[in-house]
Amino acid sequence: MSHPGTGTAAARGFATGAGHTVPPPAGHSPASPSTTGAGAGAGTSTSTEAAPHAVPSEWRADPYTHALTSGHGPLFLKGTDGERLPLGVERWCGTPDAADRTVVGRCEGAVLDIGCGPGRFVIALALAGHRTLGIDVNRAAVRRTVRQGGPALVRSVFDPVPREGRWNTALLVDGNIGIGGDPATLLARAAEILVPGGLLVVEVAARDIDERLEVRFDTGRSRTAEGEAFPWARLGTRALLRHAGTAGDWAGRETWDHAGRAFVALRSRTRPAPSSW
């Protein structure tokens, strides 16, 4: 990711502490030995932690990792029906655009970027004064974030994360509501990560859609998709609000769009205080 603050941004992250190594689940990248990100704040370690779980190859090899490493596509998700969904590699690896800034401006307090990719939101949030941490299952994505001075871990959202239950804001942008192919489960997990009354910002499809897919990464340069298949989901605003309402973990909401991209902000419900006897 190219950023004007590279090497100088004082990203205010969270140290994970000794022994806080958590393995990623199936579908997520194994990690290399820990590394420390320059500019991640005093005493703050950012690491790509070693993990024993077996991992499907689509998260650790071409073409996804190559796209993140090079900073450009073309890259697609190809469904079993042959439809190719374009992925915005250049946007992910660039500086935040106007639509991204509408997200940054709504964030509150400490922010966890779920599926942080190359780290443009992590860096932007740090520069805006937020404590922030990015988690991603892809080692190349985390390495790129760390090189820019952003705190990031190779970690699945479905495994324990640092400061669990104490994040003020969580992000699921760039289509990451699709992680795992089960939006209801992902929304429930996000509610666990946030403080009561915390904010979840989700980027949704710009059209009314509610799909569960099996996809593979594809460069568009061959007749067959590359890599192993994995589950994914696509939701529009209505579908997301329906899932959030069914889950019962979410109260207030805001919807907006900018430059052809659509977003929803959900407020987690305040948990009742335990009764006293």
Rank of each mutant, 00 (worst) to 15 (best):
M1W: 12
M1Q: 15
G5Y: 04
T6N: 14
T8Y: 04
A9N: 12
A10V: 12
A10Q: 11
G13W: 07
T16V: 08
H20Y: 14
V22F: 07
P23Q: 03
A26T: 13
G27M: 02
S29P: 08
S32Y: 13
S32Q: 11
P33H: 04
S34V: 02
G37C: 15
G39V: 15
A40L: 13
A40P: 13
A42I: 14
T46I: 08
T46H: 08
T46W: 11
T48K: 08
A51N: 08
S57M: 04
E58G: 07
W59A: 06
D62G: 02
D62R: 02
P63I: 02
T65E: 06
A67N: 03
S70R: 10
G71Q: 02
H72P: 01
K78W: 09
T80G: 10
D81G: 14
G82Y: 10
E83G: 10
R84L: 07
R84V: 03
P86K: 13
L87E: 11
E90T: 13
R91G: 09
R91N: 10
W92S: 14
G94Q: 13
G94M: 10
R101L: 15
T102H: 10
V103T: 10
G105Y: 11
G105A: 15
R106T: 07
R106S: 12
C107K: 04
E108Q: 06
G109F: 00
G117Y: 05
P118F: 09
L127H: 07
G129E: 05
H130R: 01
T132K: 04
G134V: 02
R139I: 01
A141D: 04
A152H: 07
V154H: 00
R155A: 00
F158H: 00
F158S: 01
V161D: 00
P162V: 00
E164M: 03
L171W: 02
V173F: 08
V173Y: 08
D174E: 15
D174Q: 13
G175C: 09
N176T: 07
I177H: 05
G178M: 08
I179V: 14
G181I: 07
L186I: 04
L186H: 03
L187C: 06
R189G: 01
A191Y: 01
I193E: 00
V195T: 03
P196L: 01
G197D: 02
A205C: 14
A205F: 15
A205V: 15
D208G: 13
L213K: 15
F217C: 03
F230Q: 02
G236L: 01
L240K: 04
L240E: 00
L241D: 03
R242W: 13
A244Q: 03
R253M: 13
T255F: 07
S268I: 00
T270K: 06
T270I: 13
R271W: 09
P272Q: 10
A273P: 08
S275D: 11
